[in-house]
Design a protein around this nucleic acid. Structure first.
Lengths: 190, 190
DNA sequence: CTCTCCATGTAAATGGTTACATGATTCA
DNA sequence: TGAATCATGTAACCATTTACATGGAGAG
């Protein structure tokens, strides 16, 4: 199980509620881990029971109360130990790649549409990552930032995320182009 | 469930046993889907019962008999329909990225080792992908190959796999370099 | 005689997804 | 009045991992 580690790592950014976590997972964490809100709520409850995080209720006006969680010392220790343990191989799961792999059976037009849709999503994600990286850097350039002693973890994973999405974009465009030649159809989005 | 689709797609390469599938998943399929042998055996049995693939026992000398499976027409239809359905977002799960994200809690030395280990694996995978792509291309160059009417699916996914591993390699090297500056330790592998 | 490769599985436990459920507030 | 956002969960189901299990052949 590593969802717990991903959650603990996310809390290094500061206190968060389950709802906030679920929202920001997409920008900051979903690049290397993915989870649904239900899972996060469950995991947060477990982590609190085990004392790895501490939660407190924040009463709000004009909106429902929320439970804010912060990393406790045992949580930090769990993370440190996790870093020490051997890593297991990463893995990807991607419908689209399975589909491209099997494209010889037909459905080219639909597949091209999906590739173009994914390309749009990738562009949006690249923009988000660029924004994230710019904000982290502040005024300084990348080299100086990475040599300084601040928060390099989020920056490095942000770089990986941007690189991943960039490659996805290029690949989607290339694959769509190649498939289009096969059916002589026109691009759906220009 | 998309393991079944990944298995069906893999069988487009030709008849295979569970054991062969488990072996080749690493080179050809694990780039976009990952499964353990137990899962493959189970899935193959199910797919045969449902008539999507057909199995036959091949008696061998000097080694155990094996069950060879081939794609049946309903299996091909299932794949075509799968291509038509909307794709769900891809996702990555990577221990190492979680660890780098959380690196501020300590364990830099161990983390650097793991990054270097991953870099070695990435290099090996790039070599494998290059070999795969070269074999698929045969004599022709890439552009000609992709414009011709043969098996573009495996080629395109191979390209994605190589790009992914290349980015992984660069990222591991960069991250290890950045972390090394923090602790002033020497590289473990040169 | 030991190790690795071939070849196939079952069973139990954990992890993840889908469907369902609630209820207040703000904006159009 | 309807939709979106905030905020939190439960229950049932399906998928995946871990542990266990077997057994012959060839290489060293």
């Amino acid at each position: 199980m590593t969802l717990r580690h991903a959650v603990l790592a996310a809390l290094l950014d500061g206190d968060m509620s389950g709802y906030q976590l679920a929202k920001t997972f997409d920008v900051s964490v979903s690049n290397y881990w993915h989870a649904l809100p239900q899972q996060l709520y469950g995991e947060l409850t477990k982590l609190e029971k085990e004392g790895l995080i501490t939660g407190r209720v924040v009463i709000q006006q004009g909106r429902p109360n929320k439970r804010l969680f912060s990393l406790a010392d045992p949580g930090t220790e769990t993370l440190t130990q996790f870093i020490t343990e051997p890593s297991r191989p990463s893995f990807i799961r991607d419908d689209l790649l399975v589909k491209v792999r099997a494209c010889e059976v037909g459905g080219h037009a639909e597949l091209i549409e999906q590739l173009e849709e994914r390309a749009v999503q990738a562009r949006a994600k690249i923009t988000l990552f660029d924004k994230l990286l710019r904000e982290l850097r502040g005024g300084t350039d990348e080299e100086t930032y990475l040599a300084s002693n601040s928060r390099i973890g989020p920056y490095l994973t942000g770089l990986r995320g941007r690189a991943f999405e960039t490659e996805t974009l290029l690949w989607c465009e290339q694959s769509a182009r190649v498939l289009r030649l096969r059916i002589g159809s026109k691009p759906a989005n220009g």
